[in-house]
Structures are given as structure tokens and as C-alpha cells.
Design a protein around this nucleic acid. Structure first.
Length: 421
DNA sequence: TCTGGGGTCCTAGGACCC
DNA sequence: TCTGGGGTCCTAGGACCC
């Protein structure tokens, strides 16, 4: 299991060396929360997800640099890391934007063992992308994650930890030092319940009574514990299944109370969701649309409705999906509230190839629709997202999110290439 | 003033079938 | 007094992940 340290921050540092060794945070959309922290910032006690406005005093005091998120850059850097990892093993599951699982037992001998292979990965990724990574090896995904955690937290491992190379005794010792909540699959709720039962460390969990845990927590935790004991229960998903639902939503930069403006935002989200839908070759059977007031302002009247609008015929046409979403929006909208967020979810996704014909099918219209969508996606892929969009998505974008300190899209936009001087 | 945006899997319970 | 024994499908809610 390989992951990039402080991924978003490391991407920013790759192109702006002045950020090295200074405290840096990357903020969520709308510049809301800290979603990535450099080690310096973690040392100051800033938690994942901490609201930025609450830490402004601390930031001034320690000269923390806060950057808006730049997902175009992070996505591109992520692809580069994955393409390097593929050279090490073709059996790879890209688990998240900065983490991958690889099957290595048939190839690690080429490098003289897992630890050496991990170091080779670290070196090459550092050399080619300038990103720092850590690698963890284990008999199961959960153990590999744990090994990665050890590699990251303990300098003695120099960024690579192979649990399979440790003696039982060493393994027990390390596992005794890690809190149970660090285990992949043990979240906050379960961690609390486990601690009440006296299960505090990873070692406690790995040696606990499997039957009892199954009874109290269900099959999910049972699998986690089996994995900790070295029995692999989670497959390597090297072929990503198509998504079962596709979501697009954003908080607004400023409150919105007007139906027309909400409609533009909803249509904009449909544009993006429909793009993702066509990209994976699916059609949707229903559209869910929701709007939300600001839940942090409890003094304000709260209203968070949502509705599922079934489609008469499955579709991947932005126009049909927009019509459905706007119909749903009109149904749930109530004047007199200030809305903070809206979004859409495409549901009941199926493969376009397997689409069921209907009694009133009109092949000519469907063919035109398909061609139009292909053209739209092609234009937008060359000229940028939203270049060609439905009129419903509007021109104003008064609701656009805040993004006050975004770095350039160094690697994907000719206008924003880094300049050496 | 200000608080992210995506996803997955599992279980329980209700409605319905013969 | 006593009231079967299988199933399926769907939804809501809860837990987790990054």
C-alpha cells in the first residue's frame, strides 16, 4: 500500500519550493476547512477538517500559508504517481486520489524483497514527481495499511515498513503501540465501543474473540479482525466498477434565496454529473435534487428538502436530466429561506449498452441526442469545463464558491505553465 | 462573516409472495 | 389453549472510507 504524504500540500510544494519547511494548509472548496496539513501545521494541533475562520489567529501567529484547493493539479499529479506505480506491478487498485494497493508477491524478488522494492518506489516517485510517499507491506489490505501507518510515523522505517519481515514478537510490539482507532475500518463510533470493552490497541483487537465481535459489531468488523490476523478477506479491485450513483453539489459562496438562481446552480451541477455519467458509459433512471439552509446558523429557520424525480426513460442527455432536476427543485423550493448549498445525485445507473427499448422509442431523436452530447463533451474537454453548457446553467454565477488563493494549473493549462526566471 | 464533497457496504424491518 | 415456513424486494439508517 503506497500513499503520498500530505498529498495536496506536497503537490503545492512540488511547484513552489518556497512552501518547503513552512506551515501550509490546503482548504476545502469554498475555502471552508483545512483538508490537508503540512507536518508543521499538524504539530500545531490543527485537526483535519478544522474550519479555517476559527484558526485565523493561530495562522497569523505562525505565518501559516493557506491555499485554496486546486483539484485539477492534484488529479493530474495523482495520475502521474499511478502510472509510475503501474511499472512496478500491473495488479494495482487505485483506492483514492493518493493511495494505491499493489499485489507484489510475484514481483518483489526483482528488487531483492519488499523493503527494497518500496524504497525503489519512493525514490522513483520522488525523482519524477518530487512527491514524498510511504509504502507498507502486509498479508492483507488492512495489514498493509497498518504497515504504511508505521512507516509514516516512525523514522526508524525510513518510509517503508514490511510487516511480513518482522518477527512475531516485533509485530506484537508495534501493534501494541497503535491505538485501535487507527485501524482501517474502525471509525470513531466503533473505537469508543471497543475501548469500553477494554480493547485499546491494535494488538488487543487482533487477539480479541472473533465470535463475540461478530455478534456485537457484525460481519464488517469480523473481516477487519481476520485481516489483522493475516487472513486476507478484501479482494484487490484492480478493475474499478462503474459508480452506482453520481453526485455533484457545492456550498454557495454567498447565501441564495431566489428560485431562479438556485435553478442555475442545480443545472450547473447536472452538467457536471451528466459528464461523469457519460464518461463511465451509464444512463440514469432517476435524479435526486436537494437544497439546504445553513445548518451552522441554528437561529435561522432550517429547511433541507430533497426529492427523487424518476425519469420516464433512462437517459444520459444533459437536457433531459436538467428538466427532471428543475422540476424537482420547483417542487421542493419554498421562499423565505436563505439557502447555503444545493446538489444533485444521479441514481439507478445502468450500462448504456444494456438500455431497455421502450414502446415509444424514437431512434432518430436518440441518435441526435447522442451526437450532441459527444460534441458537447469534446468541446468541453478541449476548452475547459462549462465552455458549452445548457442555458439553464446561466451566466451570472453569483453563487460561485470562494477560492481566493488557488495556485495555477501548472500541468494542464498552457496559460498557467510555470515560468523559470 | 466564515464550517467540504464525494463514495461504499451492511442490517433491520416492512410489504408482499406462495 | 393452540395460529407455518419458506422466500424476495425495497427502504431507511448507520457505519465506514478518503
Amino acid at each position: 500500500m503506497v500513499d503520498v504524504n500530505n498529498f495536496y500540500v506536497s503537490c503545492e510544494r512540488a511547484f513552489n519550493p518556497r512552501l518547503t519547511d513552512v506551515p501550509v494548509v490546503v482548504l476545502s472548496n469554498n475555502d471552508g476547512c483545512a483538508v490537508a496539513r503540512s507536518n508543521e501545521v499538524k504539530a500545531l494541533g490543527v485537526k483535519m477538517g478544522a474550519p479555517w475562520f476559527q484558526m485565523k489567529a493561530l495562522a497569523r501567529q505562525h505565518s501559516i500559508v493557506a491555499l485554496s484547493s486546486n483539484y485539477t493539479l492534484y488529479g493530474d499529479m495523482s495520475n502521474r504517481v499511478v502510472s509510475i506505480l503501474r511499472e512496478f506491478s500491473p495488479d494495482i487498485e487505485v483506492y483514492s486520489i493518493d493511495e494505491s494497493f499493489l499485489r507484489v508477491e510475484t514481483v518483489d524478488h526483482l528488487y531483492g524483497g519488499a523493503t527494497a522494492m518500496g524504497q525503489a518506489m519512493r525514490y522513483r516517485i520522488r525523482q519524477w514527481t518530487s512527491l514524498p510517499v510511504c509504502a507498507g507491506f502486509g498479508e492483507s489490505k488492512t495489514l498493509a495499511k497498518l504497515a504504511n501507518h508505521l512507516a509514516k510515523k516512525n523514522p526508524v522505517f525510513d518510509g517503508v515498513c514490511d510487516l511480513t519481515a518482522l518477527t512475531d514478537e516485533e509485530r506484537q510490539q508495534w501493534m501494541g503501540k497503535i491505538e485501535v482507532g487507527e485501524v482501517w475500518g474502525v471509525g470513531r463510533r466503533i473505537a469508543v465501543r471497543l475501548q469500553i470493552m477494554g480493547i485499546r490497541s491494535v494488538r488487543d483487537l487482533a487477539t480479541a474473540d472473533l465470535k463475540l465481535l461478530r455478534l456485537q459489531f457484525g460481519v464488517v468488523l469480523e473481516r477487519t479482525v481476520s485481516e489483522l490476523q493475516g487472513t486476507s478477506c478484501l479482494e484487490l479491485d484492480d478493475l474499478a466498477d462503474p459508480k452506482q450513483q453520481i453526485m455533484a453539489s457545492r456550498s454557495f459562496g454567498a447565501m441564495v434565496d431566489d428560485l431562479a438562481e438556485l435553478g442555475e446552480a442545480v443545472a450547473w451541477h447536472i452538467d457536471r454529473a451528466a459528464e461523469k455519467l457519460r464518461d463511465q458509459g451509464s444512463v440514469a433512471g432517476a435524479v435526486y435534487v436537494f437544497i439546504q439552509t445553513n445548518r451552522f446558523r441554528q437561529a435561522d429557520p432550517q429547511y433541507n428538502p430533497g426529492v427523487v424525480v424518476p425519469l420516464v426513460d433512462v437517459s444520459d442527455d444533459t437536457r433531459a436530466l436538467t428538466t427532471a432536476a428543475l422540476k424537482g427543485l420547483r417542487h421542493i423550493y419554498r421562499p423565505g429561506y436563505s439557502y447555503k448549498k444545493c446538489g444533485v445525485m444521479l441514481m439507478e445507473l445502468t450500462a448504456k449498452q444494456q438500455r431497455q427499448e421502450t414502446l415509444f422509442d424514437d431512434a432518430a431523436t436518440r441518435d441526435k441526442s447522442a451526437k450532441l452530447m459527444v460534441a458537447m463533451d469534446a468541446v468541453n474537454s478541449v476548452w475547459g469545463r462549462g465552455t458549452l453548457r445548457t442555458g439553464a446553467a446561466g451566466m451570472s454565477k453569483g453563487w460561485a464558491m470562494r477560492s481566493e488563493n488557488r495556485s495555477p494549473r501548472y500541468t494542464t493549462s498552457w496559460e498557467e505553465l510555470p515560468v523559470a526566471s
